[in-house]
């Protein structure tokens, strides 16, 4: 049965079983490959997207259960029009292999929407579920502080 979804402001209709996780709908059906597969069991955060502004692990949300509008990394900003958080990521040269960073940025965006000036401890807590095998944690933390400052100025 076809299912309708709103992703980054556009509507899409897909014909897939209800239990297919949103992650694989985005990647293999819609072609939005910015959202990554890392573990499939809610243990790494690479697949983080937002549903109605809330950060969720898209590997755990079945297509049939998507309850609102989906925002992926592609919806946050583009190379020519980066969002302030992405700009901070570039400013701090955060990414190494880069594979975890879509998830990191989507998680950080949800944090900053809720808490415009998080402390180090609050950042640690919000980001604890997002793994980075390249160990970019110090630069992620710095970039979140910078983004917080820049978002407030805007």
């Amino acid at each position: 049965m076809p299912t309708s979804l709103t992703i980054n402001g556009s509507s899409h209709t897909v014909d897939l079983p209800d239990e297919v996780p949103l992650l694989w709908v985005l990647r293999d059906e819609i072609g939005l490959t910015g959202t990554k597969f890392g573990c499939g069991v809610a243990a790494c955060g690479a697949c983080t997207v937002q549903i109605d502004g809330e950060a969720v692990r898209s590997c755990q949300v079945a297509l049939g259960d998507v309850w609102g509008e989906v925002t992926t990394i592609e919806g946050l900003g583009t190379p020519d029009a980066m969002n302030k958080i992405q700009q901070a990521w570039v400013e701090h040269q955060v990414a190494q292999c880069g594979y975890c960073q879509s998830g990191q940025i989507m998680q950080a965006a949800a944090l900053l929407a809720e808490n415009p000036s998080p402390s180090d401890d609050e950042i640690d807590e919000a980001m604890a579920g997002n793994l980075c095998r390249c160990g970019t944690y110090p630069r992620i933390r710095a970039a979140i502080h910078t983004a917080a400052g820049n978002l407030k100025e805007a």
């Binding site: 072609g31 939005l32 490959t33 910015g34 959202t35 990554k36 597969f37 992926t72 990394i73 592609e74 946050l76 900003g77 583009t78 190379p79 980066m82 992405q86 990521w89 570039v90 040269q93 955060v94 990414a95 880069g98 594979y99 960073q101 879509s102 940025i105």
Partner: peptide, 23 residues
């Protein structure tokens, strides 16, 4: 000197193509 990485914007916007992203 530190040179801004050529892959940084792609990796901050989900547009860098990894093997798993080939379509």
């Amino acid at each position: 000197k530190h040179v801004p990485r050529v892959d940084m914007v792609g990796k901050s916007t989900g547009t860098a193509e990894f093997g798993i992203d080939v379509r």
